[in-house]
Computed example of a mutant assay.
Amino acid sequence: MSTSPFRLRNFITLLVTFSGLVMTVSGFVLYVVPEGRVAYWTDWTLLGLTKEAWGSVHTNLSFLFFLVLVFHLYYNWRVLMAYLKDRLRQRFTLRRELAAALVLGLVVVGGSAAQWPPFLQVMELGAAAKKAWYAGEDVQPPFPHAELMPLAELSRRIDLNLAAVLAVLAEEGYPAASEEVSLKNLARRYDVSPMQLFETVMADDRVYR
């Protein structure tokens, strides 16, 4: 039974389509994802992926899209040039369309940079969506990137008794191998959020000096 040959052009076209679709989804997710300090503190996920994972997917798919687009243009360069020459022979029949596309693109870029309506409202809608995930809840960390600090430094920063912090964590089923482990790494080890560990510690009066 013979197999059909691998068609590189078809592969490139399908890859451009796939990466474009996934980038659209990941871009929308990043548009509505909670702010970084909240997402990392609460270990926010969507479809099983964290904010960091969604950012990684979007960034790497962007690079893939760029690379396959270059190959797509390379393999279809003759077709593209023939099309443009044909248009030229037809006395620039696409002049109005080209001008309209350039104007619209420049308006979107310029309006977004200057934050003109309705581009400003689009960003405000995204900001509202970010806050809606935890509306009415106190999910702010004690300070930015608190989850990245070692337990010893975290305790010093907010004036907690380190020995009591370690004892409470151990009693609640989250023993730390070292006072230098970060809240984030400890949370990942026990499949909880940094916020949950922090609230567990802060609920015990022994941690206060």
Rank of each mutant, 00 (worst) to 15 (best):
M1N: 09
T3K: 14
T3F: 11
P5D: 12
N10C: 08
N10V: 06
T13V: 01
L14N: 07
T17F: 15
G20P: 09
L21A: 14
L21F: 12
V22N: 10
V22E: 03
V22W: 00
T24L: 15
V25I: 13
V25G: 05
S26L: 06
G27Y: 06
G27K: 03
F28Q: 11
P34H: 07
V38K: 01
V38Q: 01
A39T: 02
A39Q: 02
A39F: 00
W41I: 01
W41N: 05
T42Y: 01
T42N: 04
D43T: 00
T45D: 10
T45P: 05
L47F: 15
L47T: 07
E52P: 00
G55H: 03
S56V: 03
H58Y: 05
T59N: 04
L61G: 02
S62P: 07
S62F: 11
S62T: 13
F63L: 11
L64T: 12
L67A: 14
L69K: 09
H72E: 04
L73N: 08
W77H: 10
V79H: 12
V79G: 11
M81S: 13
M81Y: 11
K85V: 13
D86M: 10
R87V: 14
R89Y: 08
R91L: 15
F92G: 15
R96H: 10
E97D: 13
L98R: 06
A101Y: 09
G111Q: 06
P117V: 03
P118R: 09
P118I: 05
L120M: 08
G126T: 06
A127H: 15
A128Y: 02
A129D: 08
A129F: 14
K131L: 13
A132N: 11
G136F: 08
D138Q: 12
P141C: 06
F143I: 04
H145M: 10
A146Y: 03
L148K: 05
P150I: 04
L151H: 02
L151Q: 01
L151T: 04
A152K: 11
R156Y: 04
I158L: 09
I158Y: 01
L160T: 05
N161T: 07
L162A: 10
V165D: 07
L166N: 06
L166D: 08
L166K: 07
A167Y: 03
V168W: 00
E172C: 00
A177Q: 05
A177P: 05
E179M: 01
E180Y: 07
V181Q: 02
S182Y: 00
S182Q: 04
V192R: 02
V192E: 04
S193P: 11
S193M: 02
Q196W: 04
T200N: 02
T200R: 06
V201C: 05
M202C: 02
Y208W: 15
Y208H: 15
